[in-house]
């Protein structure tokens, strides 16, 4: 399934920055420099950006302009980073956020039960 639009009937060829690599939950993935992290992840098919603190609900892109803060993830170690307005850079690390910590720091059993419930 191609999620990127390469030729658009009105916008023509969509111009992008250079291709760069970054890590998403430990895996090396590619995006285009300058585009928001959320868009790069969307193009890769990532839907869940984080799990909420209280009810452990999955959340993803909602407003895409930095208002709703639903798409926050741990970026370069900083939690609550709004991925929709943070640009992709070569070598950056992006991690799914659980509560306010990276998913990798949460034990699986806790993940299932919902943390800090």
């Amino acid at each position: 399934m191609e999620r990127r639009i390469t030729e658009h009937p009105i916008l023509g060829t969509i111009e992008k920055g250079r291709k760069v690599s970054f890590t998403y939950d430990g895996k090396t993935v590619e995006g285009y420099e300058g585009e928001p992290v959320a868009e790069a992840l969307k193009a890769l098919g990532v839907m869940v950006h984080r799990y909420t603190t209280k009810k452990h609900r999955p959340r993803g892109i909602f407003c895409a302009i930095g208002r709703c803060t639903d798409c926050v993830m741990v970026v370069d170690g900083v939690p609550n980073t709004r991925t929709c307005i943070t640009s992709v850079r070569e070598g950056m690390t992006v991690e799914t956020q659980v509560g306010v910590v990276p998913a990798s720091q949460v034990k699986d059993t806790v993940l299932k039960g919902g943390i800090m419930a």
Partner: peptide, 8 residues
Amino acid sequence: MGLCQGQT
């Protein structure tokens, strides 16, 4: 009173 300050 959360991160979005009631925007939604």
